[in-house]
């Protein structure tokens, strides 16, 4: 990742991944990636990183936190019936 072109690619990478990069620059990046394995890996693993984070399952709300939330909202009556659904 130390040639000027790799650096150049790095500067535009987020826009490239988000699909907000100018078309000419996109083509330049793709041409560079075809010849540069490291940049290809960086682009692919960067996209994969974002996808893995987007799909990260939310942990369940801890029971005690849930209980105190319902109490603070005066919704205790609904605590058990809702919980059994999940």
């Amino acid at each position: 990742m130390d040639s000027l072109t790799c650096r150049h690619l790095l500067d535009s990478l987020s826009d490239y991944i988000d699909g907000t990069l100018d078309e000419t620059l996109c083509r330049e990046i793709e041409a560079h990636m075809a010849d540069c394995e490291n940049c290809r890996i960086v682009v692919n693993t960067l996209e994969k990183t974002i996808l893995l984070y987007r799909d990260l399952p939310a942990s369940d709300l801890p029971d005690d936190v849930r209980q105190r939330l319902y109490t603070s909202l005066n919704l205790d009556d609904f605590l058990d019936s809702k919980k059994n659904k999940h």
Binding site: A58, L61, R66, F78, K82, K85
Partner: peptide
Amino acid sequence: DQAAYAELVEQHAGRIYN
């Protein structure tokens, strides 16, 4: 409607806490 409040909480509380 209190039941609607509880529904809203149930749908979104986990994600907001995280």
